[in-house]
């Protein structure tokens, strides 16, 4: 029975897939997104926050599953289930795979919230276990992706292509950061993905929120976005307008 480092288990999750869900956040991520809203999940190992709180705990698959099972009846009545998130949930690949295998065996509905930057073999291995992929799209050019997330996006896009071609159910999740990646050409590119992948379950726009600034400070890191305000209603309206002008209508914001 493998074990892994869990940052948090959040019950009654409403935004990481359908229905009522329990989201399990695993530690560890290969990306370093400047806006990251879970910076305490970047490092694999448990770490102490500046105010002395331990972030991350080692748990076995059984322990995680036991916590997830507690709300099974809520999942059944709502069409919900387990969402594995992070960090990058596939960063601890063996643990994630074992967890998904057990969850699948128990008939839980499974979402995987991934940034996509892992070996394709990982996806090939878990493909039969995952009901819906929540797949992050952050920037469209390799250079911009490198600059904003610390890695380029070639492998991410190839994995998206692979999952799509394999018939996976995919929802794209696109964080939009005003003045950083909400450029017209990025929006146009998001719309083009919708045309390229017509069978996507949908595209979720994730408007920027600055509440993570405190989390960065809590782990002694510098939040580089300064006092960048939250995405405004005007920002949202502009994004919608641009996306619709590009021919993409089924946007969730």
């Amino acid at each position: 029975m493998s074990s892994g480092i869990v940052l948090n288990i959040q019950r009654f999750s409403l935004h990481d897939g359908d229905g009522i869900r329990t989201t399990v956040f695993l530690k560890g991520c290969g990306l370093r997104c400047v806006w990251c809203h879970n910076p305490e999940a970047m490092l694999l190992q448990p770490q102490m926050s500046v105010d002395g709180k331990m972030l991350g705990v080692e748990m076995t698959v059984d322990q995680v599953i036991a916590a997830v099972e507690k709300d099974r009846r809520y999942y059944e009545n709502s069409g919900g289930g387990l969402t594995l998130s992070g960090g990058e949930p596939l960063f601890q690949f063996t643990f994630a795979r074992d967890l998904l295998t057990e969850a699948k065996r128990r008939g839980l509905h499974i979402c995987l919230d991934t940034a996509g930057d892992v070996p394709q073999s990982h996806f090939a291995s878990i493909l039969p276990l995952v009901d819906v992929f929540l797949y992050d799209i952050k920037a469209h050019t390799p250079e911009q992706h490198q600059r904003l997330t610390g890695v380029e996006n070639k492998r991410i896009l190839a994995n998206l292509e692979f999952l799509y071609a394999s018939g996976a159910a995919i929802t794209l999740r696109c964080p939009l950061i005003p003045g950083i990646n909400d450029t017209p050409d990025h929006l146009a590119w998001i719309a083009s993905l919708a045309r390229r992948y017509p069978n996507l379950r949908g595209i979720d726009i994730m408007p920027f929120h600055n509440m993570a600034a405190g989390k960065w400070r809590a782990i002694g890191k510098t939040w580089t976005l300064g006092d960048l305000p939250n995405a405004s209603e005007a920002d949202r309206a502009r994004w919608l307008e641009t996306l619709r002008a590009c021919g993409y209508i089924n946007i969730r914001l």
Partner: peptide, 11 residues
């Protein structure tokens, strides 16, 4: 979140 609320109360 009305559907989730209804599912919550039902459950």
């Amino acid at each position: 979140h009305r559907p989730q609320l209804e599912a919550l109360l039902k459950t």
